[in-house]
């Protein structure tokens, strides 16, 4: 598994629950190093163990935990900015998700992002189908899409769903693409880099 994914989980735990909880989780999975390195690879099982240990330590259902991780990712300024390149408003952003995997791989060819397909069911109703060898990306995307709706200032109802053939999916009902102003986004990177 790409270190970026493990490091995201680590950063999420530290930011939302503190260093002590992270150390507790690291202890449970027998991870002895100071922390994950975003640019190294780790054994796939370690990611699964990490999630399992977090679920136990926080006493939180898997789906809810993964949604929170998705929301956390979208709150990180570098990631938020990269996602905002997807489009001018939330509708365009949704349309751009088909390319998310490709965009990710353009930067990090070995990053295991899910394959996303947006199906328009009605004018205001979308189903984002999430295909991945790793179970749980549907929940992560649900949290991420909710956070990005806030970021764009869109009014939307976003829930985890499943397709008829059992694929993970996210149901999006877009009530208003520009409900309020949303957060600022300028194409030019802020001087001094993004933190």
């Amino acid at each position: 598994m790409h270190g970026l994914i493990n490091k995201s989980i680590q950063a999420f735990l530290r930011a939302n629950y503190g260093q002590r909880l992270w150390l507790q989780v690291a202890e449970r999975v027998g991870f002895e190093s100071e922390g994950f390195e975003a640019m190294l690879r780790y054994d796939d099982q370690l990611t699964e163990d990490l999630l399992q240990a977090s679920i136990e330590a926080l006493d939180k259902p898997r789906g809810a935990l993964l949604e929170d991780i998705g929301a956390y990712l979208a709150s990180l300024e570098p990631i938020r900015r990269l996602l905002r390149f997807g489009g001018e408003d939330y509708w365009e952003f949704l349309q751009s998700l088909d390319e998310l995997q490709g965009r990710g791989q353009m930067t990090l060819p070995d990053l295991e992002l899910p394959e996303l397909t947006l199906r328009t069911e009605r004018a205001d109703r979308f189903l984002l189908i999430v295909r991945s060898t790793i179970n749980g990306w549907g929940a992560v995307m649900t949290g991420l899409l909710r956070a990005m709706a806030d970021d764009y200032g869109a009014l939307a109802m976003i829930e985890q769903a499943d397709t008829a053939d059992g694929q993970e999916a996210v149901q999006v009902v877009l009530l208003e693409a520009t409900f309020n102003e949303g957060r600022r986004f300028e194409l030019a990177r802020p001087v001094g880099g993004v933190r």
């Binding site: 640019m39 570098p78 900015r81 990269l82 390149f85 489009g87 001018e88 965009r103 353009m106 930067t107 990090l108 300028e186 194409l187 030019a188 990177r189 880099g193 993004v194």
Partner: peptide
């Protein structure tokens, strides 16, 4: 102070900007 609407959708400018920023982050 250009924005996305200043570029034609067929232009790869957005991809280039995205890539430049992603590369800098990595």
């Amino acid at each position: 102070g250009l924005t996305e609407t200043d570029f034609a959708p067929s232009d790869l400018a957005m991809e280039l900007l995205y890539l430049q920023e992603a590369k800098a982050t990595v």
